[in-house]
Design a protein around this nucleic acid. Structure first.
Lengths: 334, 334
DNA sequence: AGAACGTAAGTAAACGTTTACGTTATATCG
DNA sequence: CGATATAACGTAAACGTTTACTTACGTTCT
């Protein structure tokens, strides 16, 4: 078995307390004993046991991250930022892939509680009442990323979806487009669905353009639905020069059916996406899109969480800046 | 504070031991006391403390996963399978994103040791001697996925890279191609570099085709290097009708420069990739590729690991089946 | 010289479990 | 009926730390 602090103490001829003290850089020992202890520690290859430590100081230096789909480009972008920040601050992260199913989430929450994590991040998930209650019972801090809530004790970090959509559409308008379609995400999504539709409508209105029902279709943020939506749009009216998609995957879906149908992008139709996932650079032509700084958002959410863990004080939510990344799928109309 | 087993015991008028017994479904109590205990547990909202439990049975039911890049489609595919299997078997997974830097890996290993994880999976990382020694000192099982090693005590799961490359090239040959270029990964990579080059050369040889140096170029598996490699290939000779890329990202890079240069794919040049990441379906035309069942591989690696943890016996390595997924980037030459 | 104090340690309780062992009461059997 | 087996518990040690409290001793000051 691995040596324990007791073994070290015995070999170094000091008490357990003394070893613990030098381990934790406290005072109460001479330079000489410090050297001896340090040496025997190295000699024996001693490593402290974080479990025992955790039991007594009620801190595990571990956080839980719940996300709907680890293997999506979106989630993993957030995760990257979270992990990096956490690790740089000596926290470990345990991942919980909910696959969008509520049952699983509750089970995860239970496990995280048993394992005594110091806090949890909900990434891109809505904080159901049931979850909130469970978390409250656990009595540990929570933050949200790419999501929001009205509970004052749980801060979130996200972009302003309404404004981002507004800006995307305004951008198209500035480029001379007057007939702009939208491929929305799911109609019920209070984060990435509704606000983006509102931004779209508002931008049209503010620029004297009329909203047409048949130029708005609904997908589910995924590639396939982007394809279908584009076909639907083409069938509905074919009366638009640009489309704003509520996710890059859908935008790329739209792009691919356009190409397949021989519709030139951006010459005949311009497309702008949303997210700026890695894929956008790889596709031909590269996709113009509105960027969410995913990794940075993850890092900020993690920063907030750790701050709450260590200070015990609730911190403020943040709105992070989106920006339009111009690539080659939007044409300037003259 | 959360109630402990002691609180439950007191309220239920039994001893701690009894509560523990019903909690763990052991024997030594009447049905009646069981009911009472269960009720007070529910009443008080008691949840066992896995840290205390872990301290005593030296098991944390947690595994560590080291991977070079969480946000790559490849890694997250593996991770997905790992997480799912682990969670279904009541293990938690803590992720460690090494970003390919060795220093970080050693630090992670130290943390994982302190946190007393029950085992670790190296995903798509080569097991350096230094790591192996550290792991051996920890005295816990290890498995590798999408990597291999000659240490008999660490099982791995991967596809047969040499054979997969051989099959990919043979496939092109069967489709009538005689002049086949290759965009390789890094020359030094003993897993995904060398064996795939060997498979490529062997397939040429076995079919009476001669290998030409200028038809083999080196990238680093990433998109950008795929672009550059394709340009280099075009400059070198332009004397090939098909290219085999050692990763989908590079294949897509090659595809995109082809399209940009007006080279029709697959009419003028056929392309086959490697991995079958999600991206391959989204690109136009959809990429023909050889599939590695990433999620399944992750699950198998995790299964092996858990088996080793629970039985204490080393298990065998596995070679999983690759297969060619035909999409639209390979043309049959007549 | 003696009081007062600071430094360098040691002792032991505590964290929340599991579990080996001990104790009682009841049932079983010859 | 006495011996003994068994069921139903309780007691306390153990896991590897941290830390409040105590002790021993050397300095400094008056």
């Amino acid at each position: 078995m691995n040596p324990t602090i007791k073994d070290v103490a015995k070999k170094a001829n000091v008490s357990i307390a003394t070893v613990s003290r030098v381990l934790n850089n406290l005072s109460g020992y001479s330079d000489k004993t410090k050297q001896i202890v340090l040496e025997t520690i190295k000699e024996m290859g001693y490593q402290p046991n974080a479990i025992a430590r955790g039991l007594i100081n009620k801190r595990t230096e571990t956080i839980g991250v719940l996300l709907p789909n680890v293997s999506s480009s979106f989630s993993s972008g957030l995760l990257h930022g979270i992990e990096q920040y956490a690790h740089d601050h000596n926290y470990s992260v345990v991942i919980c892939n909910t696959d969008d199913v509520g049952k699983r989430t509750m089970k995860y929450l239970k496990v995280l509680r048993e394992k005594q994590v110091d806090g949890v991040i909900f990434a891109s998930e809505v904080l159901q009442d049931e979850y909130y209650e469970a978390l409250k019972a656990m009595n540990i801090p929570v933050t949200l990323v790419s999501s929001k809530t009205s509970h004052p004790s749980v801060p979130y970090v996200k972009v302003d979806d309404r404004k981002a959509a507004y800006d995307a559409v305004s951008y198209l308008i500035r480029k001379g487009h007057k007939k702009i379609a939208m491929i929305s995400g799911t109609k019920e999504d209070v984060i990435a669905g509704i606000p983006r539709i509102e931004g779209y409508k508002q931008a049209l209105k503010d620029n004297g353009l009329t909203f047409r029902n048949k130029n708005l279709v609904y997908g589910d943020f995924m590639f396939d639905s982007g394809c279908k939506s584009m076909e639907q749009l083409l069938q509905n009216s074919n009366d638009f020069t640009a489309v704003f998609a509520a996710s890059d995957e859908m935008a790329i879906g739209a792009l691919s059916v356009a190409i397949r149908k021989g519709i030139k992008v951006p010459d005949r139709i311009s497309i702008i996406g949303y997210d700026n996932i890695k894929l956008t650079e790889m596709v031909v032509p590269p996709l113009t899109t509105v960027e969410q700084p995913l990794s940075q958002m993850g890092a900020i959410a993690c920063e907030k969480l750790i701050s709450m863990i260590e200070t015990g004080r609730v911190v403020e939510s943040s709105i992070v800046e989106h920006k339009i990344v111009e690539r080659q799928t939007v044409k300037t109309l003259t």
